[in-house]
């Protein structure tokens, strides 16, 4: 029997079904609210505490590690079908803390706090000495590579003119002198790609249609540029308004749990 007063919480095992269920609801929550980048998947549950909540229910205080997948957040592919970014591709890890309310058998996220960080260059080169590393997204060579790749995609397209939404990922290929590998998100506009003279006259479609492009840009030694690019357009996604969980008043909630009253922000879209 532990010394001192019994804590107000219980600690199931991190691999218990109830713990994993709360963690999976939390991961689904962040993937629905990420504004940019890639979907994340559950990698490990670090810790769990379950607090009783007055008058009913329980609050799961759970800390998890996630790993980035290769699916962009706008990609409707189910998370289960998204590959985890491998270490040799320069993996990215997430570290998240959640409060998940369980009431009447339903789980809903009360608060979420996440940070993500790429693996270290040493770790990447330990598994693959010549693998490319992540490059800064605002590097001028990256921005130029994306502009050339998007222009090439629009030039060969019979469909809508695609507009850049975000540069999602970039790597400098270490062996080829000036090769840049880029991934970026796009959105369809109301212009036909081959007729566009002034892109500023094109507007995003009312019912947004996003897409995702992967390209390789090479600056040839004797001058000139080469680019290969493939873009995939996603089906238009009906806007589903997220039912906001009944967010309890944080202070009252904290008192009920005997926690420090930490004012949790409304569940905002996660950047």
């Amino acid at each position: 029997v532990p010394h001192g007063p019994m804590p107000g919480y219980r600690e199931p095992a991190c691999d218990d079904p109830e713990t994993e269920q709360a963690a999976l609801v939390a991961v689904d929550y962040i993937n629905k609210r990420l504004l940019r980048g890639y979907k994340h998947t559950l990698n490990q549950i670090d810790s769990i505490r379950v607090w009783p909540r007055q008058p009913t229910g329980e609050v799961y205080e759970v800390e998890i590690d996630t790993l980035e997948t290769t699916c962009h957040v706008r990609d409707p592919t189910p998370l289960a079908n998204c590959s985890v970014r491998q270490m040799k591709e320069h993996a990215v890890e997430g570290d998240c803390d959640f409060h998940v309310l369980k009431q009447d058998g339903q789980l809903s996220v009360l608060s979420a706090k996440c940070d993500s960080s790429p693996d270290s260059a040493e770790d990447v080169h330990r598994v693959c000495p010549n693998c490319p590393l992540l490059a800064p997204l605002n590097d001028s060579r990256v921005v130029h590579a994306v502009e050339v790749a998007l222009a090439a995609s629009n030039a060969q397209s019979n469909g809508s003119y695609l507009q850049l939404v975000e540069i999602s990922r970039a790597q400098f290929a270490p062996l080829q002198a000036a090769a840049v590998y880029v991934e970026f998100a796009v959105a369809a506009t109301d212009c036909v790609a081959k007729d566009v003279t002034d892109p500023a006259t094109c507007n995003l479609l009312a019912e947004k249609q996003y897409g995702f492009c992967r390209g390789t840009f090479i600056e040839k030694v004797g001058g000139g540029e080469d680019v290969t690019v493939t873009c995939t357009l996603f089906p238009t996604q009906p806007v589903i308004l997220q039912p906001q969980p009944e967010a309890p008043t944080p202070v009252a909630e904290a008192d009920a749990l005997g926690l420090e009253p930490v004012v949790q922000p409304e569940p905002e879209p996660l950047e």
Binding site: A13, N43, Q44, I45, D65, V84, A91, D123
Partner: peptide, 29 residues
């Protein structure tokens, strides 16, 4: 026989399985 959590009793069952952190589903970075 009462033992402190996390300390296997002498001659008792095998090592105590720590409840957390849980299993790693892919790899750690």
């Amino acid at each position: 026989k009462g033992v402190l959590p996390g300390i296997p009793a002498a001659g008792g069952p095998g090592p105590v399985i720590r409840p957390c952190p849980g299993r790693i589903r892919y790899f750690k970075i």
